[in-house]
């Protein structure tokens, strides 16, 4: 436990974490604002792309917007690993705890904690936006099985993406390189293969596709969501990615010579 606290202390004694948190909340906030502002507006074919504010579909889909923060969670995960190599603090870390498996375990746990904390932050923001919107629109806040599933999914997605970032950081080590890789993967690659219909059979197996499956409420904001895996399968795919990258983080950190 001391080691997990030390890992969390490493993050909280530098400034990056709250900059990242703030940027993430602003990003998610803009997405929320956009969806709320245009909710119920008729699309090109006369049908609303975004369900109207008083509908249950609106509430269910809005809860899932927080997964947009996953990108920042992944970057934070990358930084939690790569800053050890960038500033060579990994040397000190391993001098204090030469049994490397303990360091790796502590890092994985700390990363999960950070991911869940980020998830709670975006859910709090979403909840706030939803309460204000729904109350102004004159509706009631509703809690359905779908809402529950989406809430848990947002937490899981952010936690797993933070682990994904940690593993990628352990693999690439160069901080800038790893951040570029994570941005390229999540922002460009995943978006592309999930947006181009011909590539969607591949896209549903990507972290992005799996995330979309987890929070899928049947509302695609104009995009087709029928190709996605069922929610449970999406969860498993995402878990598999997180485990794969945690394993990579472990193997590389356990064996590497620190010169």
């Amino acid at each position: 436990m001391g080691l997990v606290r030390a890992e969390l202390l490493k993050l909280t004694t530098t400034r990056l974490w709250w900059v990242m948190l703030l940027v993430m909340l602003v990003y998610v906030g803009i997405s929320l604002g956009f969806l709320i502002a245009f909710a119920g507006d008729p699309g090109p074919n006369g049908q609303a792309l975004i369900p109207a504010r008083h509908t249950l579909a609106f509430q269910e889909s809005l809860w899932g917007v927080g997964t947009g923060g996953a990108l920042f969670a992944a970057v934070l995960g990358v930084v939690m690993m790569t800053s050890e190599y960038r500033y060579q603090t990994i040397t000190t870390t391993l001098l204090v705890t030469p049994k490397r498996a303990r360091v790796v375990t502590a890092k994985l746990i700390a990363t999960l904690v950070v991911g869940v904390a980020l998830g709670l932050a975006v859910l709090a923001l979403t909840g706030l936006a939803l309460v204000v919107t729904v109350l102004t629109a004159g509706g009631d806040l509703m809690f359905t099985g779908t809402v529950g599933r989406v809430l848990v999914s947002v937490l899981a997605v952010l936690a797993l993406y933070t682990l994904f970032g940690l593993g990628l950081g352990a693999l690439i080590r160069n901080q800038v390189g790893a951040i570029i890789a994570v941005l390229a993967w999540i922002y460009i690659l995943d978006s592309l293969v999930n947006a181009i219909p011909a590539l969607q059979p591949l896209g549903k197996w990507t972290p992005g596709g799996a995330t979309a499956a987890l929070t899928n409420t049947g509302v695609g904001f104009g995009l087709d969501t029928s190709y996605l895996l069922p929610a449970w399968a999406g969860g498993l795919v995402l878990l598999a990615y997180a485990l794969l990258f945690s394993a990579l983080a472990s193997v590389t950190t356990l064996r590497r010579d620190i010169t």
Binding site: K10, Y87, T91, T93
Partner: peptide, 23 residues
């Protein structure tokens, strides 16, 4: 080992505090 084993954004005290916590 090397003089550069520090995160530049962390204070001297916090650097040692992390070590004490871990150890």
């Amino acid at each position: 080992l090397e003089a550069t084993n520090f995160h530049p954004g962390r204070t001297a005290f916090n650097h040692l505090r992390v070590l004490c916590t871990a150890a």
